[in-house]
Design a protein around this nucleic acid. Structure first.
Lengths: 213, 213
DNA sequence: ATTCTAACGGCACTGCGTGCCATTCGGCAA
DNA sequence: TTGCCGAATGGCACGCAGTGCCGTTAGAAT
């Protein structure tokens, strides 16, 4: 007899294979269940929907990222925290590169899965923004939280997708992470806005000029 | 006899009313069609799905924004073009504030509609990024296009949603647009990175200072 | 060996979305 | 007027996703 974990794995494997071979629309839940050797009703005890069979750990991923935010020291710089949260998301993909690549390809071929992926990514974006907003308490805090959260998630996806498109090679993980971290160079990720940052550096420069004069 | 446009409007009106009164899940397509005085089969000749009944012009909106990008002069600054494209999206909401507010409220109450909205917004994001990528041809072009595109769409949503949450008052439109435009202050939207931009502005300021000294 | 619990799988049902086809309505030509 | 034609309609049946219900079974506990 197989335990719950094995049945779950068999269902994911069956789904990925059938989606790949027959196409997503052409595969019914009955097909997946039959291939995995269980009843149709059992499939829905493991997954909420047909689409969930290829993103089985979405909820757990969100919880893991939320844990990073909740467990962070208040003193940790926002940039560092955001990068750590992003790396946590990477781990979810590097855990099972095979499945990640298969899902990546399917989401780019099947419109229904692409839209679902958009919604999934958006859940992460909302999570990032919710916590960023708590750190940005000035007038423009909400706007900056939204902009920076969206930008970080976008950078994460660019790096991740390039890695997945290359077939998720083990030696590419470091480059992928490095690429993601570059987003920090592009954003006013600390508490000051770009304009304020410019002003601040300008004043410092003026001070230097006056000192040297 | 009613024409196509009238039937379409009646279906949207019926859908909004029923979703509001009975709840989204509890409303069937039969209900909507019956309320609008047409057959169930006719509903699906006007809308691809039940959800489409409250976002009837999504395709047209995407086409309008694409038109802005495609019709732009190559010499127009990227920042200006992006802001114009964003304003075009605003127009889609200000065209029918009543419907926009109703949709806004529904998307925040019904998970299924929220996920669909995420996918919708993502379509705009992809459109922005596709055209930004054509303007950013340096090594980091793809990353910057993704980051800036996502940030602009996020800022747009913050401004738009604040306006919708306030009930879409006519006198609030200007403030909403102004708020959106602030995103330009936060991003390295031209071809240089933030750091380069800061340096550039700093040098210009220093030059002014030296000239006045 | 018996009881208890959790998982399983079959069955029926609702509702979305689609293909097919007969009907109807308005215009247009003879 | 009469007959034809194309577009819109709506009814019907179908496949499939997802859910509630319930009888059955397997395995653990005692």
């Amino acid at each position: 007899m197989e335990g719950r974990a094995e049945v779950r794995r068999d269902l994911v494997t069956a789904a990925v294979e059938l989606f790949h071979n027959k196409g997503y629309e052409e595969t019914t839940v009955d097909d997946i269940a039959a291939t995995a050797g269980v009843g149709r009703r059992t499939f829905f005890r493991y997954f909420r929907s047909k689409e969930d069979a290829i993103s089985p750990d979405h909820e757990a991923g969100l919880a893991a990222v939320a844990e990073v935010f909740d467990g962070a020291q208040p003193g940790e710089p926002t940039g560092s925290l955001v990068l750590r949260a992003g790396e946590t998301v990477f781990d979810l993909y590097t855990d099972d590169p095979q499945l990640s690549v298969a899902r990546f390809r399917l989401t780019h071929e099947v419109p229904a899965l692409r839209d679902r992926e958009s919604a999934s990514v958006d859940h992460y974006r909302r999570l990032f923004i919710r916590h960023l907003k708590m750190r940005f308490t000035d007038d423009d805090g909400e706007l900056r939280a939204a902009v920076i959260g969206a930008a970080v998630v976008a950078a994460h996806n660019v790096a991740l997708r390039a890695w997945l498109a290359a077939g998720a090679p083990a030696e590419g993980i470091a480059a992928c992470r490095a690429r993601f971290r570059r987003v920090a160079d592009m954003l006013p990720v600390e508490t000051e806005s770009t304009l304020a940052l410019v002003t601040q550096r300008l004043e410092a420069a003026v001070e230097r000029l006056e000192g040297s004069a």
